[in-house]
């Protein structure tokens, strides 16, 4: 039974105050500051006046920046789709694996997840570079066949392709784990019933597994989409001048362009997009919870 604060006021204060004060002073306050800045203007290099204008947001939605925003969303969406396509069979395999194999596969998926993001991105750079492993390997193969023109290394890095590959590489575990959690909860007899009634494996997947695992699929999609949308390091290291994402633009405003109010507005646009994605997830999971609750 939960207690009311009045039943143990001393404990309530001792337990509640430190985390709440910390959250307000060191988490909400910094966010509030840039939120206020997003309605401000640069007077001089260091002096920012809060004018309450929407100018920064208006500027952020001009074609130049809107294009980057849309491109970021496009990259994130493509990443999410690719992660789903790559990850669903993996999640299915884990779900129906024996206990031993299940543990092994889960650890195998988790391990890169625990490895430093920077290092994983660097590992990809080494593979994709013009003089990287893939091009070196292809070049060697090319050399075997006589009479071919000299090998032209494939442009695998500093472009959009590299950014998407990097985003998929980094975010695949984000997709597989929630998918696995959703599939594992699924009542196996429903799948068997579908097969028993004559549906093939793909029909069963499409008509029974996917609709029933939908909340888990949605959360996998959102959990992958959100960090992919705000990715900084991947486009920074793997992308070219043309594949910058919203986070790179934000970074530039703060570290080189010194336009804090505009950077703040961009940051909050990114936050609002994130919240919108979370809201979609909350609505869908509540709907399915209602359906389950009514049962």
């Amino acid at each position: 039974m939960l207690q009311r604060p009045s039943q143990a006021p001393g404990v309530f204060a001792a337990v509640g105050l430190p985390p709440v004060v910390w959250l307000f002073a060191l988490f909400l306050a910094p966010l509030a500051v840039i939120w206020t800045y997003s309605f401000g203007e640069n007077r001089t290099l260091v002096d920012i006046a809060i004018t309450g204008s929407w100018g920064n947001y208006a500027r952020a939605l001009k074609p130049l920046y809107l294009a980057i925003l849309l491109k970021s969303m496009g990259f994130a969406a493509l990443t999410t789709v690719l992660c789903f396509v790559l990850g669903l069979p993996v999640a299915l395999a884990i779900t129906f694996a024996s206990r031993r194999a299940k543990l092994l596969l889960l650890v195998a998926i988790m391990l890169p997840f625990w490895t430093n993001l920077l290092i994983r991105t660097y590992a990809l750079m080494a593979i994709l570079r013009t003089e990287g492993l893939i091009n070196a390997g292809l070049g060697a193969l090319w050399g075997i066949v006589p009479g071919l023109p000299p090998f032209e290394p494939l442009p695998l890095i500093n472009n959009n392709f590299a950014v998407v590959v990097g985003l998929v590489y980094v975010h695949l575990p984000f997709m597989v784990l929630p998918l696995y959690a959703a599939l594992d909860r699924l009542d196996r007899s429903l799948i068997e019933a579908s097969l028993d009634l004559g549906a093939g494996h793909l029909a069963t997947l499409w008509r029974v597994v996917v609709p029933l695992a939908l909340p888990g699929i949605v959360s996998g999609i959102i959990i992958t989409f959100i960090p992919a949308l705000g990715a900084y390091l991947t486009p920074d290291l793997l992308g070219g001048t043309n594949s910058q994402m919203i986070a790179n633009v934000i970074e530039r405003q703060f570290r080189s362009a010194n336009d804090w109010p505009f950077g703040a507005a961009l940051s909050f646009l990114l936050m609002y997009l994130t919240f919108a994605a979370l809201m979609v997830q909350a609505i869908i999971s509540r709907r399915s919870a209602e359906r389950e609750g009514a049962r």
Partner: peptide
């Protein structure tokens, strides 16, 4: 495979598809 056998099963927990109406359940096969 189970989907190609001339037998059908009534499961212990019934395994009625929760996301389909009664008619859709019955008509699924």
């Amino acid at each position: 495979g189970p989907n190609k056998r001339p037998v059908n099963m009534v499961f212990q927990n019934y395994a009625v598809f929760p996301h389909m109406s009664v008619a859709d359940n019955v008509g699924y096969g």
